[in-house]
Every structure is written in structure tokens, then in C-alpha cells.
Nucleic acid binder design. Sequence first.
DNA 1: GTGAAAGCGCTAACAC
DNA 2: GTGTTAGCGCTTTCAC
Lengths: 338, 338
Amino acid sequence: MVTIKDVAKVAGVSIATVSRVIHDGHQVGEACRARVKKVIAELGYRPNSNARALVSKTTNTLGVVTPKLSMPFFGSLASGVEKGARENNYKLLMSNSLYETKSEQEAIDSLRDHNCQAIILHSEYSDEKTLLKLANEIPGLVLINRYMPAIANRCVWLDNVAGARQATDYLINRGHKNFAVITSIYQNGDPGFRLQGIRESLKLAGLHLAEAAIEESTANMEGGEQAVQALLNKGIQFTALLAYNDLMAIGAIHALFAAGLRVPEDVSVIGFDDLIVSRACRPRLTTMHYPVEEMASYATKLAIQLSDTSIEPENRTHLFIPQLVERDSVADAPESRG
Amino acid sequence: MVTIKDVAKVAGVSIATVSRVIHDGHQVGEACRARVKKVIAELGYRPNSNARALVSKTTNTLGVVTPKLSMPFFGSLASGVEKGARENNYKLLMSNSLYETKSEQEAIDSLRDHNCQAIILHSEYSDEKTLLKLANEIPGLVLINRYMPAIANRCVWLDNVAGARQATDYLINRGHKNFAVITSIYQNGDPGFRLQGIRESLKLAGLHLAEAAIEESTANMEGGEQAVQALLNKGIQFTALLAYNDLMAIGAIHALFAAGLRVPEDVSVIGFDDLIVSRACRPRLTTMHYPVEEMASYATKLAIQLSDTSIEPENRTHLFIPQLVERDSVADAPESRG
DNA sequence: GTGAAAGCGCTAACAC
DNA sequence: GTGTTAGCGCTTTCAC
């Protein structure tokens, strides 16, 4: 390994001079700087980032904690963070929290050990108190997809209620009157807000949503299938189905066709997230676009900014709005057709 | 920040003793150890990993370079690496190479700066010479999804030829005689090997594959659609379609239905990779399972092992075989049905 | 069993 | 402009 000493020796200068040259120091003589640069190139010298971090206490390292990278949603999130990190010349440390409080905590701790100045956290399980404490200890901590009023300016989140309302309104405008909803068994967080949005819109339109028309299941394809089967078994009549997310929506479409129902002719289905899968199913899924990647990049820049405590943080929150993506899984209500 | 000195002071011992306690040192007195441990817990002391890395020259850090995390395939790869890293108590540094030689190189360099002892590299663009040089400099470098004879024992790869043969044979056994293939315009690497496998199997079965029945396009859904449209426009007759990957296969299914052809009744379609999307489309896609996540975990352990130059590396390569996953997009050939 | 001390590679005063 | 020097927090001999 070639160190700053080696460079200094070969170039016939002191290590301080080499250090200055590296830091674009304009306080070094022309000729000298050129010589040092040449030696650096020849020797292939690369500063040791550990030594640098140790003394300067600034690591230019950013950490991200998500449940599981193999889930396309989190892959996109990670990709957005990576982009933000790269653009700011930060290194990216990554940790899966595996949907567990304990490993979530471990993941965060390990990032802290590594002196991450900025951390992007997608936390589903830690309680508010823990998060608040953490936020207090780490200025560069930003929460993504979670809103906590006490640290509103550290939250980058999506307006799930508005998104769900938009989806519901769209269906209402298409003439639908008979709704069913499939949602996650875990009603804290996103699922709860989306359901709330659905309820609000329906109520405003004077439409009734029976409790029996809301089916809970796991938030994946299988869950979507099962939920629809349950709905059908109960004899619920519906022409419009709102799914908690794309995966459930796709499972629903499978189950609907298996039951001899056509999408969108008999039943319109709408998803949420706009993952790649939504373009893979047939019919292509109409859904609410969740700009995760963009939000993640944004959160990254915010985290880096906040980690510099010398600048006063803005006192505002960071709210994104989902957009409707019209594809082929929604049609006008059968009864309203010519 | 609480340092080892703080702990030593509070516990009334020297920093050396604290260090020993941390390292499970059994060379510390019972009472003393207990006291130090208590202080560590009380103060919430966590060793500074930079300082540690600096002196011990062992960072326990692993880097991974993939084109883009938002692609489900690479998300899975990253997830596998994360698992391997976590199990070995390694930290994970991540870099996107964005499908460009230059950023691929930058990504690798940045990992080196950070003293990664082990690196998992999914390289599509760097040439063999560059890779060889790199492998030479970094003992813990492992190539995933690329085979280079000169460093065979550093390669974790998939037998694409065998996979393609298996897929083709399966179709042949189902009575198909008229084949078409849609593949990537980039024929270096995986696409070339898969096409080779297809050709071998067909030839062995005495079946002819006209050049016109091979259509090249981009390796995504749109590419799959376009390729099938081109095939259809040319008037190619086929009952079996082999797609380079799942995405192309799904695009193909869309195009086939759009043209009034049913899958699998009129045309059987087979994919490759077994991404989540393959379970999202209708009919569900029969495909070759690519065990990326498993391979990535394996590669990670291998890289960590290789990075320890004190142990002699095994002189063998690491080859994985894809597995056929039967779902609903393949049926017996129409002409062979009762 | 425990402490003192050297030093990992680097940055940042502080001299000259 | 350039060099000297004091650490950053830690591990690791080497004494005692």
C-alpha cells in the first residue's frame, strides 16, 4: 500500500505539502504541485479513507436501512439513494432490516459504528420514541415513508390519503357505485392511510362501503388472490376493486379471471405503487405512481444537508403526491355504459 | 462521542485493558472485566471503526458493484450479498455502475479507496484485461455472472448454455417443432450463451431454426413486444417461443394476445430468470430459475474467504445450474394434442 | 493481569 | 510556500 509518506519521499517534499496538493491547495508552488501530482499518479496513490475519517471526523458516508433489497420497491428506493449519494460524492453503506425490530436496530447501530453522517431510514417497526431519540442523536437522519410531526422536517413521505382519494375518485367518476377493498392485515402506516382516503372519498360521494366489502390479507400476490376469493365467497357484489398495492391488485386480477370475471369489463381494478409488475400483468394495471426513487434521492440530499449542523435546517416537511397512471385495468362501470 | 479513553477513565483502568475486554480478552481479571463491561454499557461506548480499521488494517468491509439496483434482478443480487455480509459481520458498501464502463471503473475505485477487502463485481463492460489486473490487485475480488478461465476460481456464474438447452428440450418434449427465438441485440455474454444452448438442443433434435425466426431487440418488455410483432409481420410460423429473459417473454405474451394468439394454446412461451414479474403475468410464465440471490450469498462468502490470503484458495470454479419452473405459459404442441 | 507506549495514515495548526 | 508536529481512536507489543 502506498501512503502519503511514500509520495512525499519520492517527490522530495513533506507530507503536509502532499496533503495540500490533494486538497486542491492553492498554497503550493506551481512546480511543486505539478511534481507531486505526477508522483501521485505514478505511484497510484489513493488516500486512506479510514485515516482521513479518523482525523477529520467527516466520513462522507451515508447509510440506508430498508427491509429487503430484493423487493422491487426497496430496490428502487436504494437506487434513488445511491444516485443522491454518488452525486454528492458520498459512499453508500447498506443494511437490510428484514422486517424485524431487532435487526432494524442492529442495522442502524452498525451504520452508526461506521460513522455515517447521514442515514436514510425506512422504518416500519421501531416505535416513535426510539426514532425520536435516534433523530436527536443523529442530525443527518431522515425518515422515508413515515411522518412524525415532532420531526416533520426530517420526514420525506407520501400523501397516502390523497393518493387513495384520487384513485377512488377516479373510479367514482367512471360511474362505479359498488366498491370492494382489499388491504393489508397490518393497518398501521400506509394501509391505514390508504383505507382512510378511500373511505373519505366514498363518503363524500354518498356511497356506502360495507365492512364486509373490505377484506384483509397479506400484502402480496397470494394475499390479493385470497382476499378476492373471500370477497367472492361472501357474495359481495362489486364492479370496482381498490387494492392496497400493485401486488395485491395483480393477485386479485388472477383470482377474478379464475372466477370467470373479466378485468376491466366486469370488474375494474386499481393498484398502488406502480412497480414494474404493474406493466407485466394483463390487462396492464392502472395504478397510483409512487415516486420512490425520486423521493429517495431527495431524502438523500436532505440528509446530507441536515448532517451539516452549521446550517440552519428549514422548518418544513417534505411531502410527495402520488400520480394516477391510467392503463388498462379500469373501465366505466357496466351500468353506466351505453 | 464516547471513546475508549472515557471508558478507561470511568472504569479506572488503562485503555489497553478496555481494548482487551472488547476483544473478549480472557487475559483480564474477572472483576475488572465485569466493571469495564458495565461502564461500556452505561456510557454506550461503541468502538470507532475507522480507528480500528486504520491500525488493524482489516476493515471487514465488502463492496458490491451492479449496474442498477432498481432492476429486480440486481436488487436480488444485492440482497444476497447483504445476507452474506451480515452473516459474516461485514459491512456492505454499494455502488451502481449504470451500464457504463466509466462509472463501473469509478465505482470500483471508490470501493478500493474505502479499503474493501472483498468486492463482488457484476461487470458487463470492463474488458478482460482490466478485470484480470483488478483481480490480481484485490485478492478478495469475485466476479459474478461472468466466467474468465484465467481466474476461474474467482468466478461465480450460471451455466446459461445448459439452462437454455433445458428450456429448449422441455419444449421439444412437449411436441413442439416450430420454434422462434427473441433475444437481445447485445449478443456478448448471457444472450450469446443462451442462444447457443437453444441451437445445440434444436440441432440435436434434428429441428431446424431459420435465421429469420430469431429476432433481436432490447432486453425488456417493449423489446419483447417489438420482436414478436416483427416475427409475426415476417409471417414466421411458430408454436414455441424462447425468450432471452422474463421481461422479453412477458412483452411477447402481450404482443401475442394483441395479435389474437393465445398463450399457451396457440403459442407456448418460456422465459429465463424467474423474476417476480413472471408470476405477475397471465398466464403465469414458465421459466428457468436463476438463483441470483443464492449465488450472490455464495459469492460473498467466497470473496471473504479469498480476501484472507493466508489460506490457500481452492482451485475450482463455481458454477450454478438454472432450474426449470413449470407454470402456465407452456402447453403441448397443438399438432401433438389428442 | 495490567499499564505504558508506539504507531496505523492522515489533517491541520503552527512555525519559518 | 513549505516543513514540523501534535494528535484522531484504536490495537498491540513489551514491560512489570
